[in-house]
Nucleic acid binder design. Structure first.
Lengths: 359, 359
DNA sequence: ATTAGCAGTCAACACGAGAGAGTGCTAACA
DNA sequence: TGTTAGCACTCTCTCGTGTTGACTGCTAAT
């Protein structure tokens, strides 16, 4: 049924019809199309055209005497044809901006805020996925003793700070933590987390050689670092926010349908399947049957990868009904990922900020 | 209409009827009561009794020929009469336990996790409110320089760690941060956050006297500390979780009704009104008209304060329909707040842990 | 190729009848 | 006086019917 060479008029009709349906949520009818776009044609003619478009699989009727709605194929055609950027609202722009400018630099906080703002901008549930935690590049390692018999492990990476708490013995002099932090930092600087974890046994030996007198203490620290690494590896990198926004779409006024989607979002493994194989330069839309999950056949999933050196580091995406504002969503995702990329750049050139690079 | 001296039989009927309605969600009928509790009485007799209870305002009919449902007053009577503890499910117990035992000691993380687990245990949206941030007692202050031109401010308090990031100049030797941290810690130890903020100007002068050579640096730090204090004071202490669980109750299958409640939960000012004036030893239920918000007249709000020296530090609560499992909810809230109190105790006696005080 | 005209289809809404569940009331009974 | 059987009554819920209105598909004329 590959038949993408539509006549110019069919193309026009289809694109306008889909556009109009996305905005209004009311089925496409011949008189509808006429009053909006083709005042010089009769409804009968348009009916013929719509009929043809239906035969080609771009539209479908819900029942005999109803208007038509786009099929997944119709949406796909629309998306392929008119992916133009639309400007986002100013307040959303500034909000996204301020997140990336803000002082919340814990990786987890940033992820949460991004997911929040994407959901807000699109009005659909949003997902941020961090892949390759273990690919993060270590910049510094700090171990900070606390009063409560715990220490805070703080690892600065090229993408933000990650942290964990570990139990410690309380009779260790504070200088030891400074020594340990310095040793760990110089040892692991520019290595990845997975490097660190894989070779941690070797390092432990080296460390104990160099700082013989604190052997027992460092043993304990390394042990905790290992636990930390394992807990990070186990941790799912999936963050979903704004599930409730699904209920704003008329398509999901039916609670049962909404719950199906929300349940999927609560399941990291399934979410990973959804946002697998994304592009990094253009937003990937998976429409209907293109989604690898049986229960989401009436949804569209939109996602964009953030890649460094061709390697996917993070994915940002949303999920909603097939009838969604594709252009706006693509713009929002691209803008967010773009800001992310900018941030990285700043981060690498280390403190090139403070210049007035307003746009 | 104060008429709380019900006959023993009316009392029995009312309590059982309310109990049964809470469990089944289907209206109380005479035959219903008969088959469940009073097999030796006829339905006619029970009808008379139900009629009387209705006249007294404990029950009401939805329409002439329907069964009865409890009024707010009926629930109130039920709550006052039979507040017994019910055991929580084991997995919930252990989950709560593990949160408090866990190593996540950032105050914000703990609050999030508590709200999550309370919502999970009760199956209703849960709220945790921190009041009197400024009453927190400082134990240590640490300023930790980071690579990105920021420093992490870490304040250990008697209730957990709070943290913030501040921009710094990059040319400060690391020893300065150690000196500053030590100075701040010794100066503010056992003072409250509000003490610190109120007197920060004086301390700034003192600090600059004592460590003259770092004047400019400390000025900057104090400035950031002040910003930090202000941002904390502004920050609402309200955390709500599990809003979606509202949709599990048949009462809120109507999206519009559910949204009303969810909107309130998104508004910290209104939430503060809801959970105002709670008890600290017994769970406070606000039923129907007892709730100080017009739009929540068909809800019940349950809450419990955590107090130290008669001063409310935190509140934990849930919101749901009037038909809720009061006993179970009271038990859950009490258990969580109890764990909170235990934690404080441990914290105060500084490292009295590690003993096998299982129950 | 386009169009007017017309018959056909189907959702949505309103109306009415019937069933069923539950009540209130009355009169009889212990 | 408390309890009960019996009966009429009320109201929701469901189902079937009929009507309306919005669209469509098709045909024949332009």
């Amino acid at each position: 049924m590959r038949d993408d060479d539509l006549s110019a008029r069919k193309r026009e009709i289809l694109l306008n019809a889909v556009e109009s349906y996305i905005q209004s949520a009311s089925p496409i009818t011949s008189s509808n199309v006429r009053t909006n776009y083709f005042k010089n044609l009769s409804t009968a003619t348009l009916r013929n055209e719509l009929n043809a478009l239906e035969a080609m699989g771009y539209l479908k009727q819900l029942h005999t005497s109803s208007g038509r709605v786009p099929t997944a194929r119709g949406y796909r055609y629309y998306v392929n044809e008119i992916m133009c950027d639309v400007p986002l609202e100013d307040n959303i722009l500034t909000e996204i901006h301020s997140i990336f400018q803000s002082r919340a630099v814990y990786l987890g906080d940033v992820v949460n805020e991004i997911a929040d703002v994407v959901s807000k901008a699109t009005n659909y549930p949003a997902v941020v996925m961090l892949k390759g935690f273990e690919k993060l590049q270590i910049k510094t390692v700090k171990i900070i003793p606390l009063l409560t018999g715990q220490a805070l492990i703080l690892i600065e990476t090229n993408s933000g700070i990650i942290n964990n708490f570990m139990p410690i013995k309380t009779d260790i002099p504070s200088q030891t933590y400074v020594d340990a932090s310095n040793f760990l930092t110089s040892t692991f600087k520019d290595k990845t987390l997975s490097d660190m974890m894989q070779n941690i046994e070797d390092y432990r030996i080296q460390m104990c050689d160099e700082l013989q007198e604190f052997k027992g203490i460092f043993d304990r620290m390394i042990e905790s670092l290992r636990e930390f690494g394992e807990s990070i590896a186990k941790k799912s990198g999936v963050t979903a926010k704004g599930e409730l926004r699904l209920l704003n779409s008329p398509e999901y006024h039916d609670l049962e349908k909404a719950k199906k989607v929300i349940d999927v979002l609560a399941n990291p493994t399934e979410v990973e399947q959804l946002f697998d194989n994304l592009d990094s330069d253009e937003v990937t839309f998976k429409i209907g049957a293109e989604i690898p999950l049986e229960e989401l056949q009436d949804c569209t999933v939109a996602g964009l990868d953030y890649q460094v050196d061709g390697e996917s580091i993070a994915s940002v995406g949303i999920i909603g009904p097939q009838r969604m504002d594709y252009a706006k969503i693509a713009s929002a995702l691209k803008f967010v990922v773009g800001e992310f990329a900018n941030l990285k750049q700043l981060d690498n050139t280390q403190k090139g900020a403070e210049d007035g690079q307003e746009e």
